[in-house]
């Protein structure tokens, strides 16, 4: 019987059908601070498990063969995590750095509160994508749901498809690029001009995501009107 081993391929294979999830995550966490160990990992049979590859802090590659549940790759630093399937709610939540790629679709709150790094979704993301984003770059090839980029602070959200209601509601500073239809803009979110510097930024993001077949000039740019930053006496009656 031929058994693929890490000695032969350099890839550490962990089958979640037979290995407890906590054992996998404990081994991955053990690679922090430059600790020795495998740099390439392959995870089999996730079957919707929660928190797969959560809290990584090492420059490693993790390939997950199947659908994952809540909070996959949350709080990730440095690592590249690729999901060959769909992801549940809270994908790459609070991403710090590194790259998270989902080849299927993602559920709600993808990339929420992310502070850095890159999140790429080949399919659609659901409601509240990039909610309270703080520096993460998110590139979704398909569409995203309602209340995406709610209270977004910094970073870029790029959507190749359509966007649901209330995009960028109460946005501070973040760049939102949309190729398809926007069902509605949230409070203080407005369309802005797509200048050369934005086309260049968008081209870089699309290239990093592997979507360089999309033309950056087909996108529209949205951002903050900056009218909610400070208290206005004219609005006193609304409080």
């Amino acid at each position: 019987m031929a058994v693929e081993t890490s000695e032969m391929t350099g890839v550490e294979i962990v089958d979640l059908a037979s290995t407890p999830l906590r054992e996998l995550n404990r081994r991955l966490h053990g690679l922090a601070d430059g600790a020795p160990g495998p740099r390439r990992w392959r995870v089999l049979n996730p079957n919707g498990a929660h928190a797969v590859g959560c809290g990584l802090d090492a420059d490693i590659d993790v390939e997950i063969e199947g659908h994952v549940g809540y909070y996959c790759a949350g709080m990730n630093k440095l690592a590249t995590v690729r999901v060959h399937g769909n992801a549940g709610p809270g994908l790459a939540e609070n991403l710090m750095s590194g790259t998270v790629i989902v080849e299927g679709s993602a559920s709600q709150s993808a990339g929420a509160t992310g502070r850095g790094g890159l999140l790429v979704v080949y399919g659609d993301a659901s409601a509240r994508c990039g909610i309270s984003m703080k520096g993460i770059d998110i590139v979704v090839r398909g569409s995203v749901g309602h209340l995406s980029a709610f209270m977004a602070q910094t970073g870029c959200l790029v959507v190749g498809g359509d966007v649901g209601e209330a995009l960028g509601d109460s946005i501070y500073e973040a760049c939102l690029y949309v190729r398809g239809e926007v069902a509605g803009l949230g409070a203080d979110c407005v369309e802005k001009g797509l200048e050369d510097e934005h086309v260049a930024e968008l081209a870089r993001l699309l290239e990093r995501a592997g979507f360089d077949d999309l033309d950056p000039r087909d996108f529209r740019r949205y951002g903050s009107a900056r009218q909610l930053y400070n208290f206005k006496i004219d609005n006193a009656g609304a409080y």
Binding site: N47, G48, A49, H50, H67, G69, Y70, N86, G88, P89, S107, Q108, S126, A127, G145, H146, L147
Partner: peptide, 27 residues
Amino acid sequence: PIACKPAVLAETDDWVAMSSEWRAIAV
């Protein structure tokens, strides 16, 4: 309208299933 609580649907030629998350359907 806010879709606060999660839900996932799955369908094959033989069955249709709804759950709060994929883990229940994966089996």
